[in-house]
Design a protein around this nucleic acid. Structure first.
Lengths: 233, 233
DNA sequence: TGTGACGAATAAGTCTGACTTTTTGTTCGT
DNA sequence: ACGAACAAAAAGTCAGACTTATTCGTCACA
C-alpha cells in the first residue's frame, strides 16, 4: 500500500513523516539534521533530501543556525496524499475521517452534477458496470469485492466531472472508503439503501439528469456522514 | 509573493517547477540529474534535493538507470499550493482558474453552512468587519483594499467552518481572487450585488442561519463562475 | 541601567569525488 | 529465435571539507 517504499530515502520518510503527523513532536520542536542522520543511520545527504520533502509538505521548516522546526498542523499540506495516508494511520484517525467525509459531501454532489453533463458513453457504461458489481457483492460478506466496485464507481464520477481538481480527489475517496471497510466496524453487509442509490445514480448520469444525480449523491454522502456519527458520536 | 525563494535549492525549483507544470516537457520526457546540475550550475546534491521535492509533488518520477521521467499532468498533486501557483503563472491559467472556481462553488457553500453553526463571536465580528471593509472600498477604484477584505472574508468563513480541509483552501481562494484582480480584466469597481451578498452573508452567519448562509454563498460563487464565462467563454 | 555593535559559536547549505546498486540493452551461445 | 550472461548507464549513497547566514553573548559606550 505504501507508495514511497523504494530506496533508503523513502524508508526514513515513512518513519519520520508519520511521527510528525501523529503529533510526536509538538509544534516548534527543533530537530537537527545530523542527529536525525545518526538516528536513522544514513548519511547527511539522504537526511537532507528527507527534510526537503518534509519541508515541501509544510510539515517542517529548515532555518540556518536554528535547525529543522516542526510546524503547527494548521500549516500542513493536508491535501497531500502522502500526508493523508500518514494521518489516517495515526491516532487522530477518526477526526481525519470526518474531515474528509465532510469534504466528500461538499464535492461529490457537484461532481455528479457535472458528470451527468459531461460523462462519455464509455464512462456511463463503466458506471453501470460498477453499480452492478456493488449489487453482486452486497450480500454474503463479500466486503472486499464491494469496496473495489464502490471505489471505482466514485472514481469514475469524479473523473467524468471533467474537473481535474475533483478528479484528483479519487485517491482521497478511495482512502476513506478503504478505511471504513478495513479499520472500522464493518462486519455486516453494506446498507441496501446505499446500493440502490448508486444504481439510481448511474441511471441518472446516463439519462443526463444533472439535478437528480446531484440529489442522489447528496443522499449517499449524507448516509456516509450519519454512519460516522453512529461510530464516533 | 514567491514562497520558496530561500537558498540555491529554492531558486532552481522556482525555475524547473514552472517549466514542468507549463508543459515544457511532454509526459515521459527524461531528464538527467547531472545535465540539470550543469544547466543550473549547481552541485548534484542540490539538484538531487530539487528532484526529490518534484517527485513528492508527483511531477516527476526518478528511476535508476533511466533518469528523471516527467509524469502526465493527471498524476500531479494539483492541491499543492506551490503547484497551484506555478500553474496559475503559466499558460493554461484560464483553465486552471476555472477548475479552482468550480471547486470553490462546491466547497464554500457547505463551509458557510458549517460556519453559521460553529463560528465564534469573534469570528462573526471579523466577518462583519471584512464586509464593511469591502463596502468602504467598493467605489472609486480602490481594488487593492477591496481584494484585501474579500480575501480575509472568505478565509474567515473557511476557517470558521471548523473543518481543516476547508480551512486549508483559504490560500487557494486567495490566489484565485488575487488573480482575478491583478491579471485579468478588472478595471471597473466590483459588482455592487456581490458586495451586498457578502454583507448579508455576514449577517446570516451571525444569526446562525445555516440555510441562508449556504444559499447566499451559492449566489456568490455562481457570480464568480459567470464572471469567468464572460471573460473566457 | 539600557543599548548597540562586534565577534564567536552553531547548524544548515554547498561542493566534490569516489563508490555502490539497480536496471536495461546488447551480445553471444545454443 | 530465444534465453542467459555481461557491460554500461544513471541514480543512489557516503564521507569530508568548506561556506554562509543567523543567533546569542559579551563588552563598551551612552
Amino acid at each position: 500500500m505504501s507508495t514511497t517504499g523504494r530506496g533508503l530515502h523513502g524508508r526514513v520518510l515513512d518513519t519520520l513523516g508519520p511521527e510528525i503527523t501523529a503529533g510526536g513532536y509538538p509544534p516548534g520542536s527543533v530537530l537537527r539534521t545530523d542527529e536525525l542522520a545518526q538516528r536513522f543511520d544514513v548519511s547527511r545527504s539522504v537526511m537532507r533530501e528527507v527534510v526537503r520533502v518534509l519541508e515541501s509538505m509544510h510539515l517542517v521548516e529548515s532555518r540556518r543556525r536554528v535547525g529543522v522546526t516542526v510546524l503547527p498542523s494548521c500549516e500542513w499540506n493536508v491535501y497531500d496524499p502522502q500526508v493523508i495516508r500518514w494521518r489516517l494511520a495515526g491516532a487522530d484517525r477518526p477526526r481525519q475521517l470526518r474531515s474528509l467525509t465532510v469534504l466528500r459531501s461538499a464535492v461529490e454532489p457537484v461532481a455528479a452534477s457535472l458528470a451527468a453533463r459531461n460523462a462519455t458513453a464509455e464512462q456511463c457504461a463503466e458506471l453501470t458496470e460498477c453499480a452492478l458489481g456493488m449489487v453482486a457483492n452486497s450480500r454474503g460478506h463479500k466486503l472486499e469485492g464491494y469496496l473495489f466496485h464502490d471505489v471505482a464507481f466514485h472514481r469514475v464520477i469524479l473523473t467524468a466531472s471533467g474537473n481535474e481538481m475533483f478528479a484528483r480527489l479519487g485517491d482521497v475517496v478511495a482512502e476513506v472508503l478503504a478505511g471504513r471497510t478495513h479499520h472500522d466496524v464493518m462486519f455486516e453487509d453494506p446498507d441496501p439503501a446505499a446500493v440502490t442509490l448508486h444504481v439510481q445514480l448511474a441511471e441518472a448520469v446516463r439519462a443526463r439528469d444533472a439535478a437528480r444525480a446531484e440529489k442522489l449523491t447528496r443522499e449517499i454522502t449524507e448516509g456516509a456522514l450519519q454512519e460516522l456519527d453512529i461510530l464516533a458520536p
